[in-house]
Design a protein around this nucleic acid. Structure first.
Lengths: 234, 234
DNA sequence: ATCGCATGAAGTGTTGACACTTTTAAGACG
DNA sequence: CGTCTTAAAAGTGTCAACACTTCATGCGAT
């Protein structure tokens, strides 16, 4: 069936299939997308080393485009490296994950506030509805099955009307958050509570209460961080 | 005397002089710094085209490192480009500058709140003092004389304890804000009012009032945006 | 046995040549 | 004259070879 997964990042996502659109016209661009795919699929885990030669061979291109791609990802702070040292996928310690969620909290809080004034009535109705009908997501058999929780947040962010905020969230923050998400499922009952919180936020937005919407979103994100336990790090 | 200007970005700043520290060990790294210098100095203005060959000749290196540098800056969203098209320094329209300030508002608001709990008493005392003694800055004869207004904000951001927020502000937001700052001076009386607002913020922080500090910082930034008038854009 | 040093291997950094795309400008044609 | 075609120029994209740095292995000396 091959459902193309809606990628958080609009431009540079999975390049693997679909050669029709000529979306990734240059190899470097394609490399960016494919490396991100590797990161999302977990093949390149946090702290994992990014070997230019390996990637070049695997993607069947020379090292030039690879280096450009790595530099780009480095600019987005998804990859870290120092001169002549192996590049690594960023690895976040406990405090750094907390920092990330603080960042997300204030950005998404603002996004939610803005979206509350920006979205149309019908869009909001749709948002509420999507919170009410349950169990309909997560059954797509893909690499990222646990993406569905994001869709709510992404819907809002995309409609906040502020491209800068949207950009930082989708191209930097979410990619990182995604890496530390998989343990979340372990906590039972969380999923249902999250859904309730989503519904409350949507309702606040529908009644055009910016203040409440932002506040709810912020505490929702705070709560969601407390669940993420970090297994392996110093 | 050669006062080295404290650069907003710690790592990748001016590489021009000081060959002792071997800070920019690779050419690509050096190129990043020098391009940023070019942007800050205004030689590469918003909308200006970034020519790889020119830069390569000017920096006396091959195009490889230049391309990597451009890719990095592209990742930071300071440079835009599409395949086979000339790369350009990002150019912001009116709405986009507003978006940028919204972003800055929520990030710095959060940073200010965090710094209020993080900074020591002596650091806060120093901050207040630096707001009270006036006319002592801006006399450094450099390319960026009007940087001094930033120093207040940077002091706070550096002490907020959240590296992610600090990073986004210094390596992405401030660079862009800087580009649209020079018209600000035109408004008379603004400078004094800004100083007053800085003092009020510092005072709120000193009395450890997070809520007030964040709120004051947010309105301070809102006000500072309203001053920036955009001369040339569609 | 351990420490230090040489030596190779693996990986990153840089380069100049070549291929492709876009833009510019000149010339042919209406 | 203006417009279309076309060829050169300018700029970007890619590659393969080479230089440099770091890491790993093993050898010999103490």
């Amino acid at each position: 069936m091959n459902i193309s997964i809606a990628p958080t990042t609009v431009q540079d996502s999975s390049s693997s299939r679909r050669g029709d659109v000529a979306a990734d016209s240059t190899l470097a661009q394609a490399a960016i997308g494919r490396i991100i795919d590797l990161i999302r699929s977990g093949e390149l885990a946090p702290g994992g080393i990014v070997n230019e030669v390996d990637l070049a061979k695997r993607f069947d291109m020379s090292r030039g485009p690879i280096r450009e791609a790595v530099r780009n990802l480095e600019g987005r702070k998804l990859i870290m490296r120092e001169a002549y040292q192996k590049a690594r996928i960023v690895e976040l310690g406990v405090e750094q994950v907390q920092e990330l969620f603080q960042l997300r909290e204030c950005l998404e809080g603002m996004a939610c506030r803005l979206a509350t004034t920006q979205m149309t009535d019908s869009e909001l109705a749709e948002l509420v509805e999507s919170c009410e009908k349950r169990g309909d997501q997560g059954r797509l058999a893909t690499t990222f099955t646990n993406d569905f929780n994001f869709s709510f947040h992404i819907q809002i962010v995309k409609k906040c009307g502020n491209k800068k905020i949207e950009d930082i969230l989708t191209s930097e923050v979410y990619e990182l958050v995604r890496l530390y998400r998989w343990t979340k499922k372990a906590t039972p009952g969380r999923s249902g509570r999250a859904r309730t919180e989503h519904w409350q936020i949507a309702k606040a937005m529908q009644s055009r209460d910016e203040e409440l919407a932002e506040s709810l979103m912020r505490s929702h994100i705070q709560r969601s961080m407390q669940i993420v336990d970090l297994p392996n790090l110093g």
